[in-house]
Computed example of a mutant assay.
Amino acid sequence: MAKNTGPSFNELATQFRHENFDPLYFFFGEEGFLMDELQELLIEHALPPEQRDFNFDLIYGSEAEASQVVNICQGYPVMAERRVVVVREFEQLENNRMFKSYATQPNPQAVVLLLCTTKPNLSAHPYRALKQNATWSHFKALYDNQIPGWIKSHVEGRGLRIDGRAVQMLAEYVGTDLQTAVSEIDKLETFIGERDEITTDDVLRASGQTREFNVFELQSAIGEGRHADAMRIADRLLQQANNPRGEAIMIVAILNSYVDKLWKLQPADVQRKSNRQLAGVIGVSSYFVSEYVQSAKRYTRGRLAQAYQALVAADYELKGGSQRGPMLILTLLLRQLMPNRQAAR
């Protein structure tokens, strides 16, 4: 295969939906959600429900031994076109080196999917043999700047539309956790009912926030040095929350992502890029880049380093490292996040 990572998720999903199966698949990497999705697609399209009792095996490597698993893979289907075998935690399968031989002669009447939760040593067997003979793919964890595009594509795959600001808000909420992203999209799809577009207001209302009082207005107030406004927004967010401490933890996570973007905009060579290029650097729509650029100009790298330290300390306190209440912790944090001391007065 020409690609260093193997076929993409979309390519494999399309093949499975068209019932175009190879006898042996080998998936590995940190992005378990995508591998889980492909596992479900494979089972759904390779075997009708009525054939699964006798022709489907789900095995966990930590609970099995390779000779037994190979025997299962080599078995014939019972009154079906094929059998399906999924081996999760393949890297933990005792004596999995036995799959070196199976990889060269897989059972043509079976579809076997081997899943590793990390990237194994591909130069050692059985992984070397699997990479040479199986259909393989490396599912890397997505970077922050890839999440907005993934969210937009996933929403559109459901036949829905989503505006740019809503995409950015969701991306900030979920970080790089695709399972959380899908859960939030599920909620929003239910929230909008018969409508076919997810808007900024939908994201805010579904999360219990408003146009005036939300974490994105909070980060704008911080970036512009509007300390009083930042305090007012933070106070309202905690008042509205069912779980103020949990809300404060979420706020800190989003502000950490915000500071991270400002940090990425600091180098001189980055500042010379176009807005479109900067959008790729920090993972936002080019429509919103100017706001981040203007805020980044108000900070020095030293000030941002202090902001990182303050965020780590606040996260620690909110997660049990202090007896202080969440509003007091945020009050102290917001003063430390201001772009300069004069603006914090």
Rank of each mutant, 00 (worst) to 15 (best):
T135R: 12
E217K: 15
S220I: 12
I162Y: 02
R211G: 11
T176E: 10
V87H: 01
Y143E: 13
D163M: 09
E63D: 15
R158A: 15
V69D: 03
L178M: 13
I185P: 13
A268M: 00
L12W: 00
Q294Y: 04
L278G: 09
N10V: 10
R276T: 12
L160K: 00
K319P: 13
Q209D: 15
M169W: 00
K140I: 02
V284S: 08
L58V: 02
K264L: 11
Q132H: 03
N107E: 14
A206D: 15
G208S: 05
C116N: 11
E89C: 04
A80S: 15
F26A: 10
L238G: 07
I282D: 14
R88Y: 04
S67A: 15
T5G: 06
V281M: 01
S220Q: 12
F33Q: 03
Y258G: 04
I249G: 06
R205N: 14
T118E: 15
N95P: 01
T135S: 07
R232A: 15
E40R: 06
Q294S: 04
R272Q: 13
K119V: 08
K140Q: 00
A310Y: 08
A141S: 06
A344Q: 07
Y102G: 05
P49T: 01
M98L: 15
E94W: 12
P48Q: 11
F26H: 05
R345T: 01
K100N: 14
Q240K: 03
Q74S: 07
M79F: 12
L142T: 06
R205G: 05
L218A: 02
D315F: 03
L237M: 10
G175H: 08
H18D: 12
Q277R: 09
L337R: 08
E197Q: 14
I43D: 00
A230M: 06
D235N: 06
P326S: 01
L38N: 02
T210A: 05
